[in-house]
Design a binder for these strands. Structure first.
Lengths: 244, 244
DNA sequence: TCAAAAGTGTTCGATATACACCCATGC
DNA sequence: GCATGGGTGTATATCGAACACTTTTGA
């Protein structure tokens, strides 16, 4: 074992975080992508937002930093979900070139820890100088991205369902603070990629105490205005501890 | 950002895997621990089996290598479950000393990717020269271990339940190839830390096609001999694809 | 004959599924 | 007045939870 270490005494192993941030546009899930600055001329060059982990940080802190830069939100909801470690993931010469350009450093090996996060899609995003642009992209129309970022998104879609089952409150991170029942249903349909029966969904929702109906209704719609609901975090947290 | 990298141009970041291997002794879950070789005199020095990731490997391969060394099994069942990345995890001087002794290298920062695995507890384990001993330890009586290994085991206990729900077949990795219904029930009780009703459990199990009753029975027991069952992998895999 | 564990059914409540029509509104 | 989505109830099947006594065997 020591011989293997001795050989690569000067090998630089770096660890990054990459964030899959989902947003919901009332029809489908979207992923937040950034356009990386590069010298190389090319059509588009979109990737997941991410960063190397700094010396004083742990991975959660690095992911929070990346998302705070993009959204300005300090206490964003966020979940580590998998490490991607294949030595092959940094074999594409374009990607190696970009890494050295972006970090002014030789990077022999880069593994990444991926994070899942959720964001209201109409939130104003920051202009982050190191990116040419920041944009939402429908999850079914993603471009080919560098490294293994397409695979990371693929696996994050399975993770989001496990997350919702474990903590149903996180879906409200994707909706405006007042929302209709059909917005909520369409969000579930997008997450589970499955149509849900309107009446059964209504029955289920009306049994949930922490989804509170308001007197307010939609305005400016060309049909009967739907009732608005809000998510009550306090009732949600009580849910576990009380027997009813 | 470049300044931060420039400063630590020569910082050695290493990435390891650590494996939480569970075994079941008919009463409780046990974790496989190794005693590390150390110059320092001390009473006991148990930790999770693990290794740095080698240059040509990905993390899954490193975890397979570690477990193959210990058990001799090539195709062991295994699941990545979380990365532990705090800069604080390698702040204990004893741990730093051991790392430098074991790897003959300066290691400034070590993050680890933890794996969950399952093993029949009466399997003969290999003598691995780099460890003084390899032993099973009941999960409720773990010693204080180096780094954040106690926390890793803690979190692996939550993960194992999610794993069983996603893939119920994995519980049979913890049982002998022929087992009684009460052994299976006690295993579920250990995993969920909850007593299960014998009759309801029986009803559930007898409805599962891939748990096959045999004609064989227990021998040498001081009470009525229980029927043996086996797990049928072929029927298990069919389960998903056929409608019933 | 005693101790220890095996083996076995019924009832009840909760939950998921399937399914169709009228209502309110803006254009 | 029509197009668009809002709003609602019933019947059935399935699943999980509670619950107690008899049987077999070896010591």
């Amino acid at each position: 074992m020591n011989t293997i270490l001795a050989k690569d005494h000067f090998m630089q192993t770096y660890v990054s975080v990459d964030c899959v941030v989902f947003g919901f546009d009332n029809t489908q899930l979207n992923v937040l992508l950034v356009e990386r600055n590069t010298q190389l001329p090319r059509l588009r060059d979109l990737k997941l937002p991410g960063s190397l982990i700094y010396q004083h940080e742990n991975a959660d802190e690095a992911a929070h930093r990346v998302l705070n830069e993009l959204t300005g939100i300090k206490k964003i909801t966020l979940k580590q979900f998998k490490s991607f470690t294949s030595p092959e993931r940094t074999r594409n010469p374009d990607d190696i070139g970009w890494l050295e350009f972006a970090y002014s450093n030789r990077i022999d090996r880069l593994i990444t820890i991926s994070y899942l996060s959720l964001c209201k899609i109409n939130r104003r995003l920051n202009n982050v100088s190191k990116y040419q642009s920041v944009e939402w992209c429908p999850v079914n129309e993603l471009p080919t991205m560098p490294f293994d970022h397409n695979q990371i998104v693929e696996e994050s879609l399975e993770e989001i369902r496990r997350w919702v089952e474990f903590d149903p409150a996180i879906v409200f991170e994707l909706l405006p603070s007042k929302f209709t029942e059909s917005e909520l249903r369409k969000l579930y349909e997008a997450i589970y990629r499955k149509e849900l029966d309107v009446r059964n969904f209504h029955k289920r929702i009306s049994g949930i105490k922490y989804i509170v109906p308001l007197e307010e209704r939609q305005t400016k719609v060309a049909h009967r205005a739907a009732r608005l609901f809000k998510f009550d975090k306090i009732l949600y947290n009580k849910r576990m501890t009380t027997i009813e």
